[in-house]
Design a protein around this nucleic acid. Structure first.
Length: 523
RNA sequence: GCCCUCGUAGUUCAAUGGACAGAACGGGAGGCUUCUAUCCUUCUAAUGUAGGUUCGAUUCCUACCGAGGGCACCA
């Protein structure tokens, strides 16, 4: 609202200065410089005074002062009344504050986590799970209709390896099968084919039992993490769909090569490469299944945007699949956004696992829980925050001490600030009031009203860390405010200060909700 | 060999082409403790190298150095 008003005045000023075509930005500068800032005048050194004067003379009523600073930035400082109103708005909207409509009517499918049955739910699955479900919530907060999908590899060589391991009576079937693949390749490949065509009743039975058990185990993990999927898709269903799509396009999109059916990506773009879509045994590979998956997902839910969250080691692979898809389903390819994330690493020697080199997600949570007095909510929040605090494409080195630190950059710090605000309100035993005397505008007030903009930007740029960073800054400014201002006294301003506490509590709670971090009322 | 990604304080991370490159932890110095596992103030310290584009570059371009990932029947 206010931002649009400022933009309008700037445009008028540029027109008046004969620079109607100029582009400019309006953004939040550092707190000390004001509430909004524009670079509109910077390109016109000769006219900056003229532009500035126009803006100053026509400033929106919510703007208290305008100043020309630095190399030509124009900074806007908002009125105390504006903050008073925004505080009232936050308290009035409560748990709705921050919800926007910029993605209203938009159907989004977010596919994430994608664990493979027969294998462990390891720490590598924590990344897509936490990031994917948060992206989904951010879109929801921006007004979109969102469905979350889990796409699971219940078919393929990795499953054949595990089934082989089960037949051998191995304690850890997948690891055993994987180790034995070089020496028993023919056997395992044969099992793979049998699983695919379902021709062997004995293998079918082993397969079905293992699959069921595995999926039940995943459900317990989702419950713990707070993930709810709207759809569960499996490679066993996308395989035939994908296979048919590929077969229908042989000669046009795909070609035969050494008995396999391949897509030559380099013919479209030299930075792409050739990939096999149906192998020489006639079994569709992951590539073909992904093609089938895209169509299958759209058939279940006609999305405007399909976000696929996976590890970034698959980035180049996905580009090739998308290039093939662009020739078959150009519309779906255009709607697909691949979101690669980094790896979650542990400091060396920090944890070891009995089963090979795999560390399960639950083992990590338990380890963190050991540092949180056994508090599950705090542990989950700590893990999620560590993942969300940084850019999603980067690898993370999980620091146990830091993750549960009560100060600084951690989930606990945010949860604690929220619980503390709650506790203050409870102790006050009364509602805050924006009608009281206001006093100085503090950093907390300057930050609170920005929350909806932060959520919007996080959605546009697929960047949950914007929200995490914002919340941390907000919590710090709140702690500062609390340390220096009397909230629980009888001064004329105390009612208003209490209102700040209340608004802070709402924004922090909403922020934690968007990130999927538990926000206990008390700790 | 080719294709991607990434090199920022001692450490872990930020920075839609903008103003003195921000935080947090660590380390130094103080203070507060009303409300938990406190918290606050202050000091310390960084853009891998060399060019280029720009009024302005951590950001864009080129080369080099260094790390990681990928490159046909795995996912």
């Amino acid at each position: 609202m206010i931002k649009q008003d400022i933009e309008r005045v700037i445009r008028e000023a540029l027109e008046a200065a004969g620079a109607a075509e100029a582009t400019f930005t309006v953004e939040h500068p550092d707190l000390g410089m004001g509430d909004y800032s524009t670079n509109a005048a910077i390109r016109f050194p000769g006219k900056k005074q003229e532009i500035f004067s126009y803006i100053e003379a026509h400033k929106p009523e919510e703007v208290e002062s305008v100043e020309l600073a630095g190399p030509g930035f124009i900074n806007f400082r908002l009125t105390k009344d504006f903050f008073k109103q925004s505080l009232g708005e936050i308290i009035g909207k409560g748990s709705e504050f921050g919800k926007g409509e910029h993605a209203k009517g938009f159907k989004v499918m977010v596919e994430h986590t994608d664990p493979n049955p027969f294998k462990e739910f390891h720490i590598g699955h924590l990344m897509p799970n936490v990031i994917g479900s948060t992206i989904a919530r951010i879109f929801e907060w921006n007004g979109a209709e969102v469905k979350q999908a889990n796409y699971q590899g219940d078919m393929g060589i990795h499953v054949a390896k595990a089934v082989w391991g089960i037949i051998q009576g191995e304690e850890d079937p997948y690891v055993a099968g994987n180790n034995a693949y070089e020496t028993h390749k023919a056997d395992i490949d044969a099992i793979n084919k049998k699983i695919y065509d379902g021709s062997d009743p004995e293998i079918n039975k082993i397969y079905e039992e293992g699959r069921k058990k595995s999926l039940e185990y995943f459900e317990t993990v989702y419950k713990r993490l707070g993930t709810k999927f709207d759809f569960s898709f499996f490679e066993s269903e996308t395989a035939p769909i994908g296979k048919k799509i590929v077969e229908d396009n042989i000669g046009t999109v795909f070609e035969k090569s050494d008995g396999a059916i391949v897509f030559k990506g380099e013919k479209v773009d030299p930075s792409l490469h050739t990939r096999v879509f149906i192998n020489s045994q006639g079994i569709p590979t992951y590539e073909a299944k992904d093609l089938g998956n895209a169509k299958n997902k759209f058939d279940h839910y006609p999305y405007d945007l399909s976000v696929v969250v996976t590890g970034n080691e698959i980035k180049d692979y996905f580009r090739v699949v998308l290039a093939a898809m662009a020739q078959i389903f150009p519309d779906l390819a255009k709607k697909t956004k691949h979101l690669p994330h980094g790896m979650l690493r542990l400091p060396t020697g920090k944890m070891s696992s009995r089963t090979g080199n795999v560390i399960t997600a639950e083992a990590l949570i338990e380890e963190v829980k050991g540092h949180t007095k056994g508090d599950e909510q705090v542990a989950i929040g700590a893990v999620k925050y560590m993942i969300l605090r940084q850019g999603i494409g980067q690898d993370i080195v999980f620091d146990f001490e830091k993750s549960v630190s009560t100060e600084g950059d951690s989930g606990v710090y945010l949860q604690y600030a929220h619980a503390r605000a709650n506790s203050i309100l409870e102790k006050a035993g009364k509602k805050g009031s924006v009608e009281g005397e206001q006093g100085q505008v503090r950093a907390v007030e300057r930050l609170l009203y920005r929350f909806p903009e932060v959520v919007e930007r996080a959605g546009k740029e697929y960047a949950p860390n914007y929200i995490a960073t914002y919340l941390t800054e907000l919590a710090a400014s709140f702690n500062n405010f609390y340390a220096h201002e009397q909230v629980l006294d009888d001064s004329p301003e105390s009612g208003y200060r209490l209102a700040i506490v209340e608004a802070f509590k709402d924004v922090m709670k909403n922020g934690l909700n968007v990130l999927g971090i538990p926000a206990p009322e008390r700790m």
